[in-house]
Structure formats: structure tokens, C-alpha cells
Design a protein around this nucleic acid. Sequence first.
DNA 1: CAAATATGAAACGATAACGTTCCGTTTGTG
DNA 2: CACAAACGGAACGTTATCGTTTCATATTTG
Lengths: 186, 186
Amino acid sequence: MLRQKLTNSILRAAIIELAREGYAGLTMEGVTRRAGVGKAALYRRWSGKEDMIIEILLESKLVIIEAPNTGSLEGDVKQYLSEAAKMLRRPLSKKILPDLYSEMTRDTRLGHTIREQVQKPKNKCVIQIVEQAISRKEMAGDANYMLAYDLLAGPLYWHMLINQETADIEFVNRLVRVITTALKVC
Amino acid sequence: MLRQKLTNSILRAAIIELAREGYAGLTMEGVTRRAGVGKAALYRRWSGKEDMIIEILLESKLVIIEAPNTGSLEGDVKQYLSEAAKMLRRPLSKKILPDLYSEMTRDTRLGHTIREQVQKPKNKCVIQIVEQAISRKEMAGDANYMLAYDLLAGPLYWHMLINQETADIEFVNRLVRVITTALKVC
DNA sequence: CAAATATGAAACGATAACGTTCCGTTTGTG
DNA sequence: CACAAACGGAACGTTATCGTTTCATATTTG
């Protein structure tokens, strides 16, 4: 009968610690200090930090983007990139995601969870966009899905996560135009 | 009068540890164990792991790419992406770079060094490619450099580092063709 | 209201890395 | 060859976090 309000407070503190210290630098004691709770409250809920962060990933919609279906490739691309940019503008996401992508390369339960919960849904979304474009004859039938995925996701992530740049509407619109052009010859 | 051969052995061990444990998980003791040396040998050379890794970055050409000048935009793009792919294929680079990009978001001396030594040279290289293309009238005079940078670097980075995928020559060639098309409408 | 239980705080021993120091041995330099 | 210095290895005290336990207090539930 753990108190839900306390659970939420702890998870909020954990997210902030994750953003500040990174996953490897995250400690259970750091979370207790930030949340102002006792250690027992944490260990009654999770066996350790991996458990805790996995719960955050499973519950968070931070990284999920709905597959668009606007009727045109350019519309779909615009909606996808706009949603992605909106998510990547959040200061916590901007700090946390480079770290998660780094953890994703490791053979741990957390790495596996990130691949399944963060990356796979993103890929599904892109597949749908491409399939719709092919059925509308906006893309060739033998289009390379992986290449399309890299074109759609790569530039914005590079821009916002690696270079930690901003992306206003004007920039996203330019990106949409250019990437749509590229997808059509994909 | 520190022995250079030993310094090299230690740095090699440090790179492997960096790839296996990540920067946050890297320990001086771990490096001594892998290198089979005493701790004094390390602390006689560096004040701590940040110092040591910064020396590795400054000495390594792991991430530097020469600015191409082949006479055509497509040629430059092909050379740039081929070199980048060659570098990203190296197992150690593939493991280490996501970690460095994560550290780059932090306000530390290491973060600053990565930005200066890894990212800035890459950006300079792209600027040159774009300037050459503009002077050849292959790109518009008001092209957006940052957008060009994101297009050139983003997809391959996303492909190889985030998704840890391979990139054979065929894939790189497809990428070259599509990105060149995109750059021309940039 | 009363019983049950989750809570914060503190203390605990265990583990691991830190950075320093010592010592006996190896190396390379003059 | 002889000397100086760097070396490996071990030991040291220090610090931080781990995960557990205890206990008095606060909260929820019946």
C-alpha cells in the first residue's frame, strides 16, 4: 500500500537527477536527498536505479510520437518533425536523451528496454509514413526504409541533441521541405 | 623522464576501458588493472581520469575528417561520408562516441574539449563543402549552413551510432545521392 | 477511534575507488 | 658499470554509495 503521491515525487526527483548526473552518475542516495525522503521509501519500491529508471521509461510518453496520416508525404513529415522538435525542446529530454542513447549501446536490461520502448516505436512510425507515401506514389515502391528512417530522424536529433541547438518553427519548416525532397528520391 | 612506451600502453588500456565502461564508469584503478601497471605510473602522468581522457582526445585523430575538394558537390559529399563511415566502423569509435556526445552536454572541462576538438573541426569541414558548392553554383548563395551540417552529419550518425547499424559501400552511396539532392535545395 | 503500515531519519557493515606513500626491483643513461 | 629514476605492488586512510535494519512518527484504512 505504497503512497502514490510519494512515488510520484520520487520519480520526479529521479528524472531531475538523471538529467543532471546522467544514468551512470545517478545514485539512489542522490534521489533520496533531492526528494527529501528516506532510503527505505526507495528500496521498498525498486531494487535499484536500473529498476527505477526502467519504470520511468515504461510510464513516460516522453519519446513516443504518434504516426501521422495527413494525406501527403510533406504533411506527414511536417507533423512528425514538429512533434519530435516539440519533444526535444523540453530541457529534461534534451539532457536525458543523449545519455539514454549512450546507455542503449550497452548490453544491460536498461539498454534493452530503451531499444524496445524508445527506438522501436519511432521506427514503426517512420515505416508507416513511408508505406503511406508509397501507396500514394509519392515514393518509389522499392524505397529503402532504413535510409528513410535515418533521413527523417537523423538531422533533427543531430541538431538538437548532439549540438544542443534550438529549432524554431522556421528551422523545422526548412527541414521538412528539404527532407521531403530527399525522401522522394530515396 | 617518463617512459613513452608505458604511456602508450596505459592510453591504449584507457581507450578500451572507455569503450567498455563509458566515461562515467571509467576508473583509474580499472585502467591500472587492464594495463598491468601500478597506480603511481598513472598519477605521475595525469591528475585524474578527466586529464587522461583529454590527452587521448587531443592526440587522437579518431574524429578528424579532412575537408574534401573534389570539384563537385556530390564528390565532396561522397568523400566526406565515406571517410566518416570508415571512422564510425571502428568498433572502439562506435562504442566511445555516443558516450562522448553524452558528456559533451555537460559543463565540464571534458565537455568543452569535446566541443572544441571533435565538433568544431567537423563543422569547419562542412562549411568548406558548402562554400565550394556555392561558388560552383551547385547550392544557392543563401543556403543555411546549419541545416547543411545537420543533413550531412545527422543521418549517418543516427544510423551508425544511435542504431549501431553497419554501413556498407552500397548504403553510403545511396546516402550520398539522397543527401546531395537535399543539399541542392537547402 | 484504533489498528496497521508506510514514512523520515539515523546507524550499520560492506564494497569500491580515490589519491598518497613506501619499498624492493627494473630500466636506461651517462 | 654505477647511479638516478621510473617502475609494480602493496598498504594506507578517506570518501561515497550500497542495501539493510531499527525506531519513533505520521498517515491511511477499517
